[in-house]
Structure formats: C-alpha cells, structure tokens
Design a protein around this nucleic acid. Structure first.
Lengths: 339, 339
DNA sequence: CTGAAAGCGCTTACAG
DNA sequence: CTGAAAGCGCTTACAG
C-alpha cells in the first residue's frame, strides 16, 4: 500500500496524490481530491512517515527527553506534552535512559536520527561542563537542520525555555514556614548536578535569610532524589539525632514521603514532632499521613507550554514561566519548635 | 553530513561505507574499515535513521503504547522496556493518548508510520469488539511488513504476549485475606473494559469462593481507575454506610490509596475498622499509613521480557508469564470483622 | 491545476 | 572485497 497505489486507483499522478495528502494542501481540483480521498479509504492507505521524513527532512513528531520514566515529575511533564501536541496533530515520542549514569547526550544523539520536528529536553541533570558542551553542540546541529529545541526546567541552556517555579516556589515555602514559626529547617536535596534542585535551594535559602531563619551548610543533606534515597538518609540522620530540627524540607515529594516513613520508623511522628514539606505536589501527596505540605508546579501546563513554544518561530531566546502555588497541608500544621 | 561525505573523506564508495556502518557488517577490508570509522569521528557523522528506515523498511526502535503516561503501572512497564532495549541498542519510543477516550488504535496507526522494529502494546483497554477488530487488523498489517507485536497484560489478542499476574495475584490476595479472617470484602474496580482488572477480579472471586467467602455482585463497585475515582466512590459508599464490610480490595494501589484517604475523612480508620488491600506495589505503597498490603507484579521484568520476546522469532503465538508476589503489610493486620 | 523527473539519505542485489 | 546502479516511499521545484 503505497502512495503510488492510491494514485493509480484514483487515476491521477503520484504528485497530485501527494499534494492532497500533505498538510500544505496546494490547489488541487475538488473532483481529483475526492477521488484520492476515496482511494485512501478504500485501500486503507497509511502514509509512511519515515519516507516523508527522509524526503522533507522532518517528522511530525515531538521528542521528549527525560531522565527517569518512573519519576512522576517527568511523567507529568510528558503528559502535558502529549496534551499540547495532540491538537496540533503531532505524535509524541518519549525517550529516557535506563540508568542514572547515562547522560542526556546519548539519547539526544539517537533521537536526532529520527528527525523529530522538535526536541523537548526535560532532563535536569547538569552534567560536567564537557558533556554539557557536547550536548549543546549536538542540539545546535539539530537546530541548524530546522529542528526546534525547547528546554523545560533548567535555565542554563541557550535554547528556548520553559522555566518552572523551583526558585520562587522554594521562596514561598521558606516564607510560609517562617510565618508558621519554624526556625530550624533541615534541607534534603539531591547531590549537586541538578539545576532544578539548585534553584529550589537558592530560592529557599534566600527567603529564609530574609526572615532571619538561619540555614547553614551543615543543615543541608544530600541523597539520591528518590523515595529510597531520602528514606535511607533520614534513617541515618535520625540515628545521630536530628537535634532541635523542627522541619524537614525535601526537594521533592518523593523524597519527603520517604523521609516521613523513615521518621516514623525511628519513633518520630512526622508532622508532630518534626514537620515535613515537599515539592511538586504529586498524586499521593495528600494521601500520606499527615497530608504533605508542598508546592504545585503545574507540570502539565509546563509540558503543554513547551509544545506551544516549539510551534512558534522565535527570533531570539524566549523564556516562558509557569507559576508555582504553595499547597499548605497538615504536615506543617503544628507550631514551630520555638515560639 | 551524509554518508556520501564520509565515503568521500575515506576514499571509498558509498556502498562500502554503508557496509561498515550497518549492523550486519559484511566483509570489508580492515584498512578501509578503519579509514571509514576515522572519517565518521572526524566529521561527527550521525546516520539518518529515517533514511535507513525508508530503505530497510524498519527502524531500530521499539514503540510502546500506553493508555496513561501518569499511571505508575505504565511508567514501570516502560522503564522495564527501556532497560531491556538498551543492551540491544534499540531506542525506545513511548506513545500514549492524552485523553481517556482515545483508544489505542489511533496511536498504533500513527506509530506504524514510524516503522518501529517492534510495537509493545501495554494499554489494557479492551474497547468495543468493532475497534478491537480494527486494532488487530492494523497490527496484523504491521506484522506482515516485518514488524513484531508484543502485548503486555491482556491475554486476549492474537499476538505474542507477556501475561502479568493479575489472575493468580488476585487469587493469592483472596486466599491471604480469607486466612486472616476477612470474610466481607468489598471490591473496588474500574468500569468494565479493562482486561487486567477483569483477570484480577476473576482470580479473586474464584479463590474467595474456594475459601467460602461470599462476594456478590453488589459487593463490587466501579469507578475510574485513578486515585480520585476511588476517593470519590468510597466517600459515597461510606456515606451510605459500608455495613459490615471488613476489607476494601482495590484493583490498584492508586485506587487503594484514594480509598484510604476517603475512609479517613469519613471517620473510619483504614486498617483498623476496615482493612484495605491494593494491587501493583507502586512506590509509595509502603509510605501511606498504615502501609498498604498489595501484590507485586514485577512490571519492570515484564517490560524487559516483552523486548526479549520481540527480539526472538516465534513460530506460533508465544506466551510468557511473570509471577506475582503477595506483599503483606499493616493495612490488613487486624483480625477480620468476624472471628 | 497537473505530470514527469529529480532528489532526500541510505541499503543491497548484481557484477566484477 | 568493492563499486555502479536501482530502489525504498515520499515531496517538490519545474514546466506545462
């Protein structure tokens, strides 16, 4: 079933059949158009996208690069992309590396060969300068051939970007906690290398300082940005004594949730003896006990915004922001450690 | 940067350059091979996968079709696929529909045009017979052109299949609950149309009957298979009184978690007055209070198994099974409603 | 409005 | 072992 078959069936040339089926519908006589569409239906013709791609140099496809399929942070962005792409008739393709160690570079390389119309980079690992350089170069080359690249999250790459609310969200959280009387926070973040987490941390520390809440380097602990990473870390911390810590502030809900379980197992009631706050507002954040105070990033909107941005032709680097919303819940309802 | 450039740079013909770079590495003199590889490096040549695809009719790509990106059920299978595909040098592409209403058919149609080497169908919506017919036809056509299709989950499609433990898992759970003394279960399932849920239900009911636990049609309630679906349903049920129900058995952890929150808000302590059990063992199942009893399906293994199966040439329909494991936790620790 | 022809970047018999 | 040539399925100036 090729276009040639359709053309023959409709009694026209390959060229006019192509003209009818391609998006940029050129002028074709109505009768011819009809016959062709009929033939398409009758034959069950399905255009070969890869052939279109080698001919036009691009596919009506948007590729999303994520670091970890399993992390709700990424799957929510992906969902937003799907929702944004669907009305535009674009099909979305999600690629992620299986191992933490793999950087985004390899994935982008493979993806480029597929000639998507745009690449949305949602991964947030910063990587060393060397591989960052290589990544940028790879993406630039892709742009040169007409591709669009959109970054979601980090604000450090020279491409059109959708910035999430990590920084202001961290700030809102710090202000909220200070208002509630919490003055001895301990931060649970990922190891260096995540620009999202860095923004969150900066935002938090800045606002904390403004409210005279002192957070020293020794109050910041780092672990793999997963449920288990935080769980293990907090078990260890609790063993050594959490001192007069009055609130645990995690870089993600997943980490916060792991932290809560660890506290509980160490005989510390989360939300009671020590408050807990997360980040992201994932499904499930309101189902743990106590319900988790967090910051909603509206990741779905961010994903959709990325597609929109990719559909536009921008003259220079364009940045779009998605605003965060503080979601206060029971895990920070008790008064602080000190009045 | 095309193969032609590489060939010129290496002083060979397009043909031999192609022979060196293609997987099925035919005999090429070592010196030529070296010069070509050098040229590839020097020029930063990246093969155009879509061109390869139109020429060979297939891409070294595996496409996964899911119903909902956000559901951990699907993202875990996807992760398994990625892990299975990576060593084989296949890049994976995940496609899902944004809306519940869209069936898998449209996605498969679009995907076919991309000529992946295999399509892994993880969606579990059964759809009406008509669209099922169309889906099968579409996939058959794809197979005819050399593609491989693997179904994960449902056992009702005429293709190679990886069967998950919904049926035996449901049975294990029923047996376990009966042993614990629970005799008045209420089931929380999705609306008809999910074959996974149907298998789970069958397995549960069959084993329950074996243990003289009676479950009538009126003990089975249905809602959207999401956290919110179950939450809303259980709020409603609780208002009308849950009677002497002693355990809520949900078709997924997500539903179970929503149910727990609903119970709690209605003044019923989950795990205490009414036990709760889930299915899937998602991240977070051990972080709710009480920790959730569930069944682990090993979805990662299933995803990897699907890729393996797709790599093999099977003579006739081949079925692989992944065994479920019961994970007893605190949410079913109390004695049953009746001794 | 429409067709014949060249071209997209690669692969693969076919003939040396 | 290697090259010239045909072909994959589609698109798009070019010339009617």
């Amino acid at each position: 079933m090729t276009l040639r078959d359709v053309a023959r069936e409709a009694g026209v040339s390959l060229a006019t059949a192509s003209r009818v089926l391609s998006p940029g519908t050129r002028n074709v006589r109505a009768s011819a158009r009809e016959r062709i569409m009929e033939a398409v239906d009758r034959l069950g013709y399905r255009p070969n996208l890869t052939a279109q791609a080698t001919s036009k140099g691009t596919t009506r496809t948007v590729a999303v690069v994520v670091s970890d399929m399993q992390d709700p942070y990424y799957s929510t962005i992906a969902q937003g992309v799907i929702e944004g792409a669907s009305p535009a008739g674009l099909i979305v393709t999600i690629a992620g590396s299986g191992h933490q160690a793999d950087d985004d570079l390899g994935v982008v390389r493979a993806l480029r060969g597929l000639s998507p119309q745009m690449i949305i980079l949602a991964g947030s690992r910063r990587g060393d300068p060397r591989s960052r350089e290589a990544l940028v170069e790879e993406l630039r080359a892709y742009e040169t051939r007409g591709g669009r690249v959109i970054v979601v999250g980090q604000d450090e790459l020279p491409f059109d970007t959708v910035i999430l609310g990590h920084r202001p969200g961290g700030g809102q959280l710090a202000t909220f906690l200070a208002d509630r009387g919490y003055v001895r926070p301990v931060l649970l973040g990922p190891p260096p290398g995540s620009s999202n987490a860095a923004a969150w941390e900066d935002g938090f520390l800045e606002a904390a300082k403004l409210h005279s809440v002192d957070v020293s380097e020794s109050d910041i602990h780092r672990a793999a940005p997963t449920r288990d990473g935080a769980y293990t870390l907090v078990r260890r911390l609790a063993r050594h004594g959490l001192g007069d810590t009055d609130v645990l502030v995690a870089a993600s809900d997943l980490m916060a949730i792991g932290a809560m379980s660890a506290l509980r197992e160490c005989g510390i009631e989360p939300g009671k003896q020590i408050a807990v706050a997360g980040f992201d507002n994932v499904v499930g954040a309101e189902d743990v006990t106590p319900q988790l105070t967090t910051v909603d990033l509206d990741l779905t909107a961010a994903g959709a915004a990325a597609v929109q941005l990719g559909l536009e032709e921008t003259a220079s680097r364009t940045v779009r922001r998605v605003e965060p919303t503080l979601v206060p819940r029971a895990s920070t309802r008790q008064a602080g450690g000190r009045p």
